[in-house]
């Protein structure tokens, strides 16, 4: 167990080092001057000299790299050239918004996608299976922005059940104060006991979560169905049937555990990917997440922000993968043997 974890951790560090080299190299190769970006139009020579010294641009490239690595290791991602605030602070603030939507979306995907996949595997080529399959194909084929806008038209435009966009009703946001303990509005409002604010936060989450989950839902349903079909054809399932085991126990205990490995892989990858922020969903719902921040930073040549976000996201992605690897270890006894 310890050896397994150590191996994965070592691998993670190597990959992160690689990411640092690449982001650093890219920031030096890409056109555009960070100095200009930082100082605006017509700076004085004095200002330029000061900035050059601050960014170490006059020193040899390997010295610059060592400064960069040292900063990163200390958790200092630099200051955003655009907002003038520390990049880490910006990222964390945006990240919590993304994290809230994404996590809820993944939970929804697992809760709906897995049973649906099992059901359509069990009822192979029956009505449920065809229905789930059409739904999967539709979910994958429809562009995300279209799904989002259709949901808005229905639930906001026609029915007026749910808000159009944003994280919270601005009047409620002003009237009901709650401390940002976790940055997750659902939890913060509950902690502060602000019931109205909680309801508003929840209502604002529904459509973004739905939109974000539909495409992944399709993938997870599909994968669950196909692995389940494969597992159900195994000899050990026949053994259980030959001993009169009830179907539900066969499907949801013995067969499901065998499908966990491929399913964990897909769910982990999906989660890691979504944590990068979905630009489209954020734009459609005016959601202050990471995706929009990254796009802004890239278009404005905000190098510290781009580099910081890249490293931050790589770390998160690798951490999710690490967790998945550990879960593999728990699920599959054959891994434990070696």
């Amino acid at each position: 167990m310890i050896k397994y974890v150590a191996q994965r951790l070592a691998l993670m560090i190597v990959i992160l080092a690689g990411v640092m080299v690449v982001t650093f190299a890219l920031s030096r190769v890409l056109p555009g001057s960070p100095i200009e970006m930082m100082l605006g139009h017509r700076p004085t020579q004095e200002q330029i000299d000061l900035a050059r010294a601050k960014l170490h641009v006059d020193e040899p490239i390997y010295t610059q790299f060592s400064y960069y690595v040292a900063d990163m290791v200390r958790g200092d991602f630099g200051e955003s050239l655009r907002t003038g605030r520390p990049v880490l602070e910006d990222v964390l603030e945006r990240m919590t918004a993304t994290f809230e939507v994404t996590t809820l979306a993944v939970i929804l995907v697992v809760l709906v996608g897995v049973p649906l996949g099992v059901l359509s595997a069990v009822k192979q080529n029956h009505l449920v299976d065809h229905g789930a399959r059409s739904f999967s194909i539709a979910g994958m084929a429809l562009p995300v922005f279209l799904i989002g806008m259709m949901l808005q038209m229905l639930f906001y435009g026609e029915l007026s059940w749910l808000p159009l966009q944003g994280r919270m009703n601005s009047e409620i946001l002003l009237d009901y104060e709650f401390p940002r303990v976790t940055g997750l509005y659902l939890i913060d409002t509950l902690l502060a006991g602000q019931w109205l604010a909680f309801k508003s936060a929840a209502a604002h989450l529904v459509l973004p979560v739905l939109t974000l989950s539909i495409a992944s839902l399709a993938v997870v349903t599909r994968i669950t169905r196909n692995t389940m079909v494969e597992v159900l054809a195994q000899d050990y399932i026949l053994t259980l049937k030959a001993y009169g085991m009830r179907k539900r126990r066969i499907y949801f205990l013995y067969a499901l555990k065998a499908t966990l490995i491929p399913m964990l892989t897909v769910i982990g990858l999906t989660y890691g990917f979504m944590l990068g922020g979905s630009v489209v969903v954020e734009y459609v719902f005016d959601w202050p997440g990471l995706g929009g921040y990254v796009v802004g930073a890239i278009t404005k040549n905000d190098f510290p922000a781009v580099m910081g976000v890249t490293l931050f996201l790589s770390t998160i992605y690798l951490s999710v993968n690490l967790v998945i690897d550990l879960l593999y270890y728990l699920v599959d006894p054959r891994l434990r043997a070696t």
Partner: peptide, 24 residues
């Protein structure tokens, strides 16, 4: 049938390597 299987009649299979679930 579930009443009869296991209780009245049991079965063993050709390939013992695949007849048992590797995860349990």
């Amino acid at each position: 049938l579930q009443e009869i299987r296991g209780r009245k009649v049991a079965m063993i299979f050709q390939n013992p390597f695949t007849a048992l679930n590797p995860f349990f």
